[in-house]
Design a protein around this nucleic acid. Structure first.
Length: 471
RNA sequence: GCCGGGGUGACUGAGAAGAUAGGUGGUGGGCUGCAGACCCACAUACGUCGGUUCAAUUCCGAUCCCCGGCUCCA
């Protein structure tokens, strides 16, 4: 089966063909470290994590690169507002970013590349752009001369003269208001030396400098949130293609739909920003990932408590089906029964359909629907048969874990389920024992403590209440 | 103004010229000592108006509404 991926450039689903055989090179625009990572980042990065997992599942050797913007005016602004050092602020936020990514079970990125550590490559690209006549220097910085680039606007389908409008007054030294900054001459804040004096790089140049270094002039996939199409990705194309003379810079441009909060655009100014850490306090990572995967990655997604509850219940339905079949008695016979053969056939069908859906531009909602179909078949089987072939059971459990693993769900380990269960059971036992003690029924309460001790659990009455531990 | 995306049942969310999407919630039934789980069934679903067609929610046109981008954005 061939994988088809929607390409923002052609606005069509295209059959996916890596440039060099089995190797796939993917770049995703990472965070700018001026604030805590929020659910919008989570949505985008989970989407690309799923894409990365699926590419690897299909057997591609994927190199997944993400930049980390640790040099940027907003970071400096934020640092000034809070009286902090911008370098230290970025460092702290980078640590929490990685903590959040890990908490969301994100592990598919091969290399994170900091802008601050790629200054030579950034300067080199700017130099080459000047040499080729694409960029010019003014009193305030180095600018890209958009009049020199013919194919401007391919990605966003904007015409150059349509984008003259601007919210911020353009720098008066620019030839055209649309020209974007490659290097800003500055005297305050974190500064780097350049042939044009001290300053900092523009917004778009770090990405092409980093991607050129690790992935080359042309590579397979470039991704990010849909809000980056213009001007960010458009400018990247301008920079890279004018240097390399090769197009397209990326074979496939993928963009994720934005996350909304209760129907509104999430943003600081709206006062409705939810950090990843906040969300993880209310819902476990699997529920968030399931919630994201329930909507196609290109569609906008609306975060509400209600929808998260729906996602949580839905995910639980899948777990329950697994639980239902796992608790059956197992047997090892040479022959499967007709019912078991049928179930195994349905399992293979489910796998096939799941992968077919993923091949169609990573259609996770459809893929998930096939898991539910299978869950129903499992439930029917378990309602009718009290016993199941051990090998078949293993196949079903593995299959769910493998397919779910592509989405990063259904990975809950047996141990952790049981540990969670034990916690809850102990809460209950303790509560019951407290009632017996309150009624001065010490015979029963002592018996509870004694029986638990034999089971390997020590109960202690402490001033802070009853505590228990394994011994 | 320009460039995109979208309007599907209580909520969500796919899809495609003719199929029952799937899920959550609700109601009724089955199973059950009770509850839960599970199974079965049910609810005027495809923004509006035209057109093409044997047939459209799916194609075409018009129209209304929503969302995003237009140099801060994942």
């Amino acid at each position: 089966m061939t994988l088809k991926i929607y390409d923002t450039l052609t606005r069509r689903k295209e059959a996916f063909k890596p440039i060099s055989g089995n190797r796939v090179y993917m770049f995703v625009c990472g965070p700018t470290l001026y604030d805590y990572s929020h659910l919008g980042h989570a949505r985008t990065y989970v989407a690309f994590d799923v894409i990365a997992r699926y590419l690897r599942y299909k057997g591609y050797t994927l190199f997944y690169l993400m930049n980390i913007t640790d040099v940027e005016d907003r970071i400096i602004q934020r640092a000034e507002m809070t009286n902090r050092d911008p370098v230290e602020l970025a460092k702290t936020l980078e640590t929490t970013f990685h903590r959040d990514m890990k908490a969301l079970r994100m592990n598919s990125v091969n290399l994170y590349a900091r802008a601050s550590e790629h200054m030579p490559e950034i300067l080199d690209q700017i130099k080459r752009l000047i040499e080729k006549g694409y960029a010019y220097e003014t009193k305030t910085g180095i600018y890209y001369d958009l009049a020199r680039f013919e194919d401007f606007g391919e990605l966003s389908h904007q015409k150059l003269d349509e984008v003259k409008k601007h919210r911020i007054d353009p720098d008066p030294t620019k030839k055209n208001p649309q020209d974007f900054t490659l290097w800003k001459k500055k005297e305050t804040g974190p500064l780097w030396d350049s042939p044009w004096g001290k300053g900092r790089p523009g917004w778009h140049i770090e990405d092409t400098a980093i991607s050129e270094l690790y992935l080359g002039e042309q590579y397979d996939i470039h991704g990010g949130g849909i809000d980056l199409i213009f001007p960010h990705h458009e400018s990247e194309i301008v920079q890279m293609e004018s240097l390399s003379g090769k197009k397209p810079m990326a074979r496939n441009w993928l963009h994720t739909g934005l996350l909304m909060i209760s129907g509104e655009r999430m943003g600081k100014s709206m006062g409705n920003s939810v950090t990843i850490a906040d969300a993880l306090e209310d819902y476990e990572a699997e529920v968030l990932r399931f919630f994201f995967a329930s909507t196609h990655y290109r569609s906008p997604i609306d975060y509400t408590k209600d929808k998260l509850e729906q996602a949580k219940n839905s995910l639980e339905t899948l777990y329950t089906a697994l639980y239902n079949i796992k608790r059956l008695q197992t047997k090892e016979e040479k022959q499967l029964t007709d019912e078991e053969k049928k179930l195994r056939k349905e399992l293979r069908e489910t796998e096939r359909k799941f992968l077919k859906a993923m091949d169609d531009d990573f259609n996770t909602p459809i893929a998930i629907s096939h898991l539910f179909d299978m869950a129903k078949k499992i439930n029917i089987f378990t309602a009718e048969d009290g016993i199941v072939d051990k090998k078949l059971l293993g196949e079903i459990v593995n299959s769910f874990k493998e397919l779910g693993g592509i989405l990063g769900v259904l990975q809950r380990e047996k141990e952790s389920v049981e540990e969670e269960l034990i916690e809850k059971l102990m809460d209950l036992v303790i509560e019951l024992r407290r009632e017996f003690r309150n009624r001065e029924n010490f015979a029963v309460s002592d018996r509870i403590r004694e029986e638990l001790r034999r089971l390997g659990i020590t109960l202690e009455d402490t001033p802070d209440g009853m505590k228990w531990r394994k011994h």
